[in-house]
Simulated scan of single mutants.
Amino acid sequence: MNIGQAAKFSGVSAKMIRYYEQIGLIPKALRSDAGYRHYSQPDVHSLCFIRRARDLGFSVEQSGVLLALWHDRDRASADVKMMALSHVARLKAKIDELQAMAQTLEHLADHCRGNDRPNCPILADLAESIAAAEQPPLTSRRTPRFGVDTRASSRSSSR
């Protein structure tokens, strides 16, 4: 099948298929006499495998490792499990980070009056990082934070 058909069946765009070939994630496709790429059923299965790995958040490099493990019938499933659990740990850490960001923004939004006045704790908080960057480093300098321990709460109580 041609690249368009392979893209349709695998759910991987033609552009990404060409990229995966270029970086060696998948072998270069056979070419017709006219120079068109030709993909076999196993090629499409590999593309489906890569798409699923990418959908689960694995990097291109990790997808390549998983693909190699999938093709290696002598592999130990422990290797695959270790890789998956390591990825789960990274995903959970990212989830925690995103939740902290959301909490910070919700907290700041809760303290913003949202009226026609220019005072805005959201912008004030964002501007604090600019002011901190302009000052020489001190041991008491605030570190980036997530969560509700922002200075907006102290500003809102002084209004």
Rank of each mutant, 00 (worst) to 15 (best):
I3C: 03
G4F: 11
Q5W: 06
Q5V: 11
A6Q: 02
F9T: 15
V12N: 02
V12F: 00
R18V: 11
R18E: 12
Y20N: 09
Y20V: 07
Y20C: 03
E21S: 01
E21I: 05
Q22I: 13
I23S: 02
I26S: 06
I26M: 05
P27Q: 14
A29P: 02
L30Q: 09
L30E: 14
L30A: 13
S32K: 04
A34K: 13
Y36M: 09
H38K: 11
P42Y: 10
D43I: 09
D43E: 06
V44I: 15
V44R: 01
H45M: 14
H45Y: 15
F49R: 10
F49S: 04
F49W: 11
I50T: 03
I50S: 00
A53V: 08
A53Y: 00
S59Y: 06
S59L: 00
S59K: 05
V60S: 02
G64P: 01
V65T: 14
L66V: 08
L67S: 11
A68V: 02
L69K: 06
W70E: 11
H71A: 08
D74S: 08
D74R: 14
R75E: 04
S77C: 14
A78G: 01
D79F: 08
V80M: 12
K81C: 10
M82V: 13
S86P: 00
A89L: 12
R90W: 03
R90K: 15
K92L: 07
K92R: 13
A93G: 03
K94E: 15
I95N: 14
I95A: 13
I95M: 09
E97M: 11
Q99A: 14
Q99E: 15
Q99V: 10
A100K: 08
M101K: 05
E106W: 07
H107W: 00
D110H: 15
D110Q: 12
H111N: 13
H111P: 05
H111M: 10
C112G: 05
C112E: 07
N115G: 14
P118S: 08
N119K: 09
N119A: 13
C120A: 08
P121V: 12
P121Y: 01
P121D: 01
I122P: 03
I122K: 06
L123C: 02
A124Y: 07
D125S: 08
L126F: 06
L126K: 11
L126Y: 03
A127S: 04
A127L: 14
E128A: 12
S129A: 10
I130D: 12
A131E: 15
A131K: 12
A132L: 12
A132D: 04
A132F: 08
E134L: 03
E134I: 04
Q135T: 14
P137G: 02
